[in-house]
Structures are given as C-alpha cells and as structure tokens.
Design a protein around this nucleic acid. Structure first.
Lengths: 231, 231
DNA sequence: TCAAAAGTGTTCTTATTACACCCATGG
DNA sequence: CCATGGGTGTAATAAGAACACTTTTGA
C-alpha cells in the first residue's frame, strides 16, 4: 500500500471489485492491478489502499480506484467489511470493500501509484490474489449473481440501443446459465421497460435485429413500487 | 464510548442492532442502551464500542454486546459499514454494524460498562437515537424484512414446539402484513420443513392446536440446493 | 443458395389467490 | 352454551416451462 501501515493502530482501507462485461466477450472479467510494492510485490490484487482521515469511505473508494487504475465516476456499492486480525501481514488493516459492474470499453485504464499495471482478467482464470482478495472476489461474485436477479444491473453494460439477443447474452454470461429465447423475450417485454425503436442493426450477415432502449422513467417508477426484475 | 477516541486517527467501532420478537407481543423490538457517558449522555443508543487491536471485528461485536447488555452467544450478521467523517462528534469513527433477531425472553439483560440501562423498545416508538443510530436501525430493518422472505430467520424465535398460528403471527409481525391462514399453512407445510408432533397445546380456552417442530436436517439440505423460503 | 441469427404462439404444468364453515376446548 | 382460535378444500387465475419452424440478410 502507498500509505504506510501503522502497527500500533487499526488501519482502515478500501478495496474495489470492478466487474467488467463487454458484449462480444463471453466471460465476466474483473479489474486487477499488479502491485509494485511490498507486501505481495509483483502479485495481482484488487485495487485498494488506506482511507484518509478527512474523507468519507465511499469517497475514499472512488479516489483509490481512480488513483490506481484511472477509472473515474463509477457507481460503487458497498459489499462487505473484512476485519480479521491476520488478513494483512504488516499490521492490522480492516478493509471496507465495494463492487461495481461496468463495461470495460467505456473506460481507459491508467495505472499509477503503486500499481505497475491495471488489467481486466477473466474471472474463471484467477487462481490467487494478494492478501485475502480472492475471498473478497468470491464474495463479490456471489453478491453480484444474487443482485442481478432483482435489480436491473446491466443497463449500463449495453450500448444505448441494443438487441434483445445482446440483453439475453448479458444475463446468460453473468448468471452463467441459459434462457429460452422465447420465454426470455416474453418476460422482458412484459415488464414494459424497453422501448422498441424503428431501427435495425446494420452490417450483420444475417437478418438484422430490432433495436431497443431502456425506458428509465418507467423503470424508476417500478422500482419504487417494489418491482421485481427476477428472471 | 468507553475507550477514548483518538482524534489523530481513524477509530473503528462496532454497533449492534438486536431485534427482539416474543410470541404474545405484537410488535418488533430492538435492544437499546442508555449512555452514561458523553457524547449523547443520557440518550438511547445501539450497543456499540471501539474495536480492540487484537480482536477480529466479528468477535469484537460479540464482546461489546456482551459487555454492555449481558447478551451472549448470539449469531450476529454483518449489516453495513458507516464511515462518514461527521458521524461522530469527537473524532473520526468508522463503524461496522451487525444485526440479529432473537427472542427476548431467552435472555437476561445485564447492563454494564458505560450503559446505564439496557432495554427492549418497540421499533415503532423510536424517534431518535444517539449518533447516526437511527439511520443504522432503519437500514437494519430494511435488511431484516428483505432477508426473512428468503431465509428462515425466525426458527429461533419460537419455542421448540410451536403451533402454525404462532409461526404465522411471527411472519406477520416482522413483515408487517397479513397472510391468509389456509394459504400460509399450505405453503409452509409444502416446504416439508416442519415435523408434525403427536402433541397438542394445553390449557387454552379453545380447541388445542397441533404442535410442530423444525426439521433442521431437511432445512440445511434445502438451503444448499438454493431453496427459497419466500412467502 | 447457404449460413447465421431474428422472430414468433401454443400447450402443459405449476403456483398463487380468494374465499367460509364446522370443530374442540375451557370458562 | 358461548367465545375463542383451530382446522380444512376447491375453483379460478396467473406465471413459468417446454418446444420448432419461418424469415431476413450478407457473403
């Protein structure tokens, strides 16, 4: 970590689990940095660092993420706080973790600080991470899968205009399952949250699909009424 | 708080939201202490205190709860971490909060430490609390209501042998709603998690109800298969 | 003309809701 | 004998699951 750990006190840090999903890609990715500093020098880790005394922890998470990876203006949701005595080799560090799901192609990565590298890595290929970050990642993945069934996470992962097949494959990738095409369409359209456009895909070597966009106003209304997005 | 706040560092505390439900009682309660110390001297607050450097935060929550209220051996679940700069008047304190739902009559309250009193208070009557504890309480209540629909919280709130009406009124109280008696029974019995006993209530001035107990083995199995307790 | 994905309905099964009367017990 | 809560079934509706062929497009 960039700030020094004080062995005489409980230090507090934030760590961010940024999931990435791009259309055309088949798997879910996570943003990792390579550490240019001890401990775990040269190993991959979640972006994270100590909280400053004069910043709210939510703001701290945003700052740390920006400083290490260049990602800015991301909606982070709090995940869990990990506080075991032994989780950091240099002292006592309680970490508040956050997660988000974004579209990698919307952002440029710019590693700096003690991050010598910032990269998207496929979830399925990750075997180990610095500290207890692998455990944090697993916790985040479980939460994401649970959450996406009830909340329209994912609206920000598609282009403004998208096809129903794109939407379906987004859900299939994140939930790691398959849906019946007709049933998926029936359900998603019955929610009345998509606006069909008088536009079609162009330049595809097959029948062009109709494009849709999200009806945010309608969605917000349904949310407040306790609407359920389950599939 | 009992330990002194150090203004030069970020202090870390735990706070516990202990919900209480007793049969025969119509409303949901929460365990509060009266503070015998500044700040907020004499005001009601959630039991909470600073974390020691040599204890895990989960263990810290248990210890603090025990020291202030006498409650021991309670399964606490982490709720959320509140870390705004301004949340504590004497310095920077990030608090990790926990919650649980228990049956008050199973425990004796024994206030000590800086708690001059420890009491069960009806949720609906609480207007204000020390620090940001009212907000913490609201967050916990939302979480509890969400959670009880998918998890069998509540098994520990009833006597070992209970009637279906007791179970129903437990759910109705916590979710603040009403269920149709026949539909409730049909659904709960179809889950196959209750064992009907060859025993009846005694001493009631009406037809005696059959008693049931939970089939924990069966429940654990269903849990791992992704079972859903929704009502 | 072929390959590739788009688009479209029906049937069957299962879950959810609404609803009202008789039963057993103790006071 | 009455007040109190216990106990029971059915019909209607809604939601979910399974399933296969025709259409459009560009290469």
């Amino acid at each position: 970590m960039a700030n020094p750990i004080d062995r005489s006190i409980i230090n507090i840090s934030v760590d961010c689990v940024i999931f990435g999903f791009d259309e055309n890609e088949i798997d879910l990715k996570v943003l990792l940095i390579e550490r240019g500093e001890e401990p775990f020098f040269g190993q991959m880790a979640l972006p994270g660092d100590l909280v400053n005394i004069d910043e709210n922890i939510d703001e701290s998470a945003k700052r740390v993420l920006r400083e290490l990876t260049g990602l800015d203006d991301i909606f982070l949701e709090q995940l869990f706080t990990f506080g075991n005595i032994t989780r950091h080799p240099l002292g006592r560090v309680v970490t508040v973790t956050y997660y988000a799901l974004i579209k990698p192609s919307d952002f440029d990565l710019l590693p700096s600080g003690f991050a010598t590298m910032a990269e998207w890595r496929s979830i399925s290929e990750i075997r180990e991470l610095a500290f207890d970050h692998f455990k944090i990642l697993s916790t985040a993945l479980t939460r994401l899968k649970g959450k996406i069934r009830y909340q329209p996470i994912g609206f920000n992962l598609l282009p403004e205009k998208f096809t129903l097949t794109q939407l379906q494959s987004l859900y299939e990738t994140i939930l790691d399952t398959d849906f019946d095409k007709r049933n998926f369409r029936k359900k998603i359209l019955s929610m009345d949250m998509l606006i069909p456009l008088n536009e079609k895909q162009k330049g595809v070597a097959h029948r062009a699909a109709r494009l849709y966009k999200f009806d945010m106003e309608r969605y917000d209304k349904l949310q407040t009424l306790g609407f359920n997005f389950a599939l």
